[in-house]
Amino acid sequence: MKTQEELTEIVRDHFSDMGEIATLYVQVYESSLESLVGGVIFEDGRHYTFVYENEDLVYE
């Protein structure tokens, strides 16, 4: 089982391919040991929310 830090790094690596990240945040109250819920804001102003669970990243 991966730690929350490892899950965060996986998500950061994925989004870094889309541009320069200004902020990546995790909603700790919605996340667990198996899933990571949060959002990412890019330097150009784009903002996505995401759920990473079971090695699957869903964002909008």
Results as ranks from 00 to 15, higher is better:
residue 12 R to V: 06
residue 19 G to I: 02
residue 40 V to F: 02
residue 29 Y to W: 12
residue 15 F to D: 01
residue 59 Y to F: 11
residue 48 Y to H: 02
residue 53 E to R: 12
residue 56 D to S: 15
residue 11 V to M: 05
residue 47 H to G: 04
residue 27 Q to C: 14
residue 34 E to I: 11
residue 24 L to Q: 01
residue 24 L to D: 00
residue 50 F to W: 08
residue 40 V to L: 04
residue 47 H to V: 07
residue 15 F to C: 03
residue 44 D to A: 01
residue 16 S to W: 07
residue 3 T to S: 12
residue 32 S to Y: 10
residue 20 E to H: 14
residue 22 A to V: 14
residue 20 E to S: 12
residue 30 E to G: 07
residue 1 M to R: 10
residue 51 V to C: 10
residue 1 M to Q: 14
residue 11 V to N: 02
residue 60 E to Y: 11
residue 17 D to V: 14
residue 6 E to T: 06
residue 23 T to N: 11
residue 5 E to K: 08
residue 38 G to N: 00
residue 9 E to Q: 13
residue 13 D to W: 12
residue 41 I to A: 04
residue 8 T to M: 12
residue 9 E to P: 02
residue 14 H to S: 08
residue 16 S to Y: 07
residue 9 E to F: 10
residue 56 D to L: 15
residue 5 E to I: 09
residue 38 G to H: 02
residue 49 T to R: 10
residue 46 R to P: 03
residue 19 G to N: 02
residue 29 Y to G: 07
residue 10 I to V: 08
residue 6 E to D: 09
residue 4 Q to N: 05
residue 60 E to T: 15
residue 54 N to W: 07
residue 53 E to V: 14
residue 6 E to P: 03
residue 60 E to D: 08
residue 25 Y to R: 03
residue 53 E to G: 08
residue 36 L to I: 11
residue 24 L to F: 09
residue 48 Y to Q: 01
residue 49 T to A: 07
residue 8 T to G: 05
residue 21 I to N: 02
residue 10 I to W: 08
residue 53 E to Q: 13
residue 31 S to L: 08
residue 27 Q to S: 13
residue 33 L to Y: 11
residue 25 Y to V: 05
residue 32 S to R: 05
residue 7 L to W: 05
residue 21 I to E: 01
residue 1 M to L: 13
residue 7 L to H: 03
residue 44 D to W: 02
residue 59 Y to Q: 03
residue 55 E to N: 14
residue 48 Y to E: 01
residue 21 I to C: 03
residue 23 T to L: 14
residue 20 E to F: 11
residue 7 L to V: 06
residue 30 E to V: 13
residue 21 I to G: 02
residue 17 D to E: 15
residue 55 E to C: 08
residue 42 F to E: 00
residue 39 G to W: 13
residue 30 E to K: 11
residue 11 V to K: 02
residue 46 R to K: 06
residue 2 K to M: 09
residue 3 T to E: 04
residue 1 M to S: 14
residue 6 E to F: 08
residue 14 H to Y: 11
residue 49 T to C: 08
residue 43 E to Q: 12
residue 21 I to D: 01
residue 55 E to D: 13
residue 47 H to K: 07
residue 23 T to Q: 12
residue 31 S to T: 09
residue 4 Q to E: 09
residue 35 S to V: 13
residue 23 T to R: 11
residue 51 V to Q: 07
residue 33 L to E: 10
residue 49 T to M: 09
residue 5 E to A: 14
residue 49 T to Q: 08
residue 55 E to R: 08
residue 29 Y to Q: 06
residue 43 E to K: 15
residue 41 I to G: 03
residue 28 V to C: 10
residue 16 S to A: 12
residue 41 I to C: 07
residue 54 N to F: 10
residue 23 T to Y: 15
residue 12 R to A: 06
residue 50 F to L: 01
residue 51 V to G: 03
residue 15 F to P: 01
residue 19 G to A: 04
residue 21 I to T: 02
residue 28 V to W: 13
residue 54 N to A: 10
residue 4 Q to W: 07
residue 45 G to H: 04
residue 3 T to D: 05
residue 12 R to H: 06
residue 49 T to Y: 09
residue 32 S to W: 10
residue 39 G to Q: 09
residue 18 M to E: 04
residue 23 T to M: 11
residue 39 G to T: 10
residue 36 L to Q: 01
residue 12 R to E: 04
residue 50 F to R: 00
residue 24 L to W: 04
residue 43 E to P: 04
residue 59 Y to W: 11
residue 2 K to A: 07
residue 54 N to D: 08
residue 4 Q to H: 06
residue 47 H to Q: 06
residue 46 R to V: 05
residue 17 D to I: 14
residue 19 G to V: 02
residue 42 F to H: 00
residue 37 V to Q: 10
residue 51 V to L: 09
residue 40 V to Y: 01
residue 6 E to G: 05
residue 13 D to Y: 13
residue 38 G to K: 00
residue 38 G to C: 03
residue 58 V to M: 10
residue 45 G to S: 04
residue 28 V to Q: 14
residue 12 R to C: 06
residue 38 G to L: 03
residue 17 D to G: 14
residue 17 D to R: 14
residue 9 E to S: 12
residue 29 Y to V: 06
residue 50 F to S: 00
residue 45 G to N: 04
residue 33 L to K: 14
residue 25 Y to L: 04
residue 36 L to K: 00
residue 59 Y to G: 03
residue 59 Y to C: 06
residue 52 Y to G: 00
residue 36 L to W: 05
residue 4 Q to A: 08
residue 10 I to M: 10
residue 13 D to C: 12
residue 60 E to V: 14
residue 38 G to A: 01
residue 58 V to T: 13
residue 26 V to H: 03
residue 48 Y to W: 08
residue 37 V to I: 12
residue 59 Y to E: 03
residue 11 V to T: 03
residue 47 H to R: 07
residue 42 F to W: 03
residue 22 A to S: 12
residue 56 D to Y: 15
residue 32 S to E: 13
residue 3 T to A: 05
residue 55 E to V: 06
residue 3 T to W: 05
residue 39 G to K: 06
residue 53 E to F: 13
residue 13 D to L: 14
residue 1 M to P: 12
residue 34 E to A: 12
residue 50 F to N: 00
residue 39 G to D: 06
residue 60 E to N: 12
residue 8 T to C: 09
residue 9 E to Y: 08
residue 19 G to T: 02
residue 19 G to C: 03
residue 17 D to C: 14
residue 46 R to Q: 07
residue 7 L to K: 04
residue 24 L to C: 04
residue 17 D to T: 15
residue 9 E to L: 12
residue 2 K to E: 03
residue 22 A to I: 13
residue 35 S to E: 06
residue 50 F to M: 00
residue 1 M to N: 13
residue 55 E to P: 06
residue 20 E to Q: 14
residue 17 D to M: 14
residue 9 E to V: 09
residue 18 M to T: 03
residue 52 Y to E: 00
residue 24 L to S: 01
residue 3 T to V: 05
residue 47 H to I: 06
residue 35 S to Y: 15
residue 44 D to S: 04
residue 31 S to R: 08
residue 35 S to F: 12
residue 47 H to E: 08
residue 59 Y to L: 07
residue 10 I to N: 05
residue 47 H to S: 06
residue 57 L to D: 01
residue 60 E to K: 15
residue 54 N to M: 10
residue 33 L to P: 12
residue 11 V to Q: 00
residue 34 E to C: 08
residue 26 V to W: 06
residue 10 I to A: 07
residue 29 Y to S: 07
residue 56 D to A: 15
residue 17 D to N: 12
residue 3 T to H: 05
residue 33 L to G: 11
residue 22 A to G: 07
residue 40 V to W: 00
residue 8 T to S: 09
residue 18 M to S: 04
residue 42 F to P: 00
residue 42 F to R: 01
residue 53 E to D: 08
residue 4 Q to L: 14
residue 36 L to N: 00
residue 56 D to V: 15
residue 17 D to Y: 14
residue 15 F to Q: 01
residue 35 S to A: 07
residue 41 I to F: 08
residue 60 E to I: 15
residue 49 T to G: 05
residue 56 D to M: 15
residue 51 V to T: 11
residue 60 E to H: 14
residue 55 E to L: 09
residue 1 M to H: 13
residue 42 F to D: 00
residue 39 G to S: 09
residue 18 M to F: 08
residue 41 I to N: 03
residue 40 V to I: 09
residue 57 L to T: 04
residue 35 S to L: 15
residue 20 E to D: 11
residue 21 I to K: 01
residue 25 Y to W: 08
residue 34 E to S: 14
residue 37 V to S: 10
residue 38 G to D: 01
residue 5 E to F: 11
residue 17 D to W: 13
residue 12 R to N: 05
residue 58 V to L: 14
residue 60 E to G: 09
residue 45 G to A: 04
residue 39 G to L: 11
residue 48 Y to D: 00
residue 37 V to C: 11
residue 39 G to N: 07
residue 43 E to L: 15
residue 59 Y to T: 05
residue 20 E to I: 14
residue 51 V to F: 10
residue 24 L to V: 09
residue 11 V to A: 04
residue 37 V to W: 11
residue 30 E to S: 13
residue 59 Y to K: 04
residue 25 Y to K: 03
residue 7 L to I: 12
residue 11 V to G: 01
residue 15 F to T: 01
residue 22 A to C: 14
residue 29 Y to D: 06
residue 23 T to G: 07
residue 50 F to V: 01
residue 30 E to Y: 06
residue 57 L to M: 06
residue 59 Y to M: 08
residue 1 M to A: 12
residue 27 Q to L: 15
residue 13 D to Q: 13
residue 31 S to A: 14
residue 41 I to L: 08
residue 30 E to F: 06
residue 15 F to G: 00
residue 48 Y to I: 10
residue 54 N to H: 11
residue 25 Y to M: 04
residue 51 V to D: 03
residue 17 D to H: 15
residue 24 L to P: 00
residue 20 E to K: 15
residue 33 L to D: 10
residue 43 E to S: 15
residue 8 T to R: 09
residue 3 T to M: 05
residue 13 D to N: 13
residue 59 Y to V: 10
residue 58 V to H: 14
residue 15 F to M: 06
residue 46 R to T: 07
residue 26 V to K: 02
residue 2 K to N: 05
residue 34 E to D: 08
residue 37 V to H: 10
residue 26 V to T: 06
residue 47 H to A: 07
residue 31 S to V: 10
residue 16 S to F: 06
residue 18 M to Y: 08
residue 30 E to Q: 09
residue 15 F to H: 00
residue 22 A to E: 09
residue 42 F to Y: 05
residue 44 D to P: 01
residue 8 T to D: 03
residue 33 L to R: 14
residue 32 S to P: 07
residue 24 L to G: 00
residue 39 G to I: 13
residue 6 E to S: 06
residue 5 E to R: 07
residue 42 F to L: 07
residue 28 V to N: 10
residue 8 T to F: 10
residue 4 Q to C: 08
residue 14 H to A: 13
residue 32 S to C: 09
residue 12 R to Y: 10
residue 31 S to W: 10
residue 33 L to T: 13
residue 14 H to Q: 09
residue 58 V to E: 07
residue 49 T to S: 12
residue 58 V to R: 15
residue 13 D to M: 12
residue 47 H to C: 07
residue 59 Y to I: 09
residue 36 L to F: 07
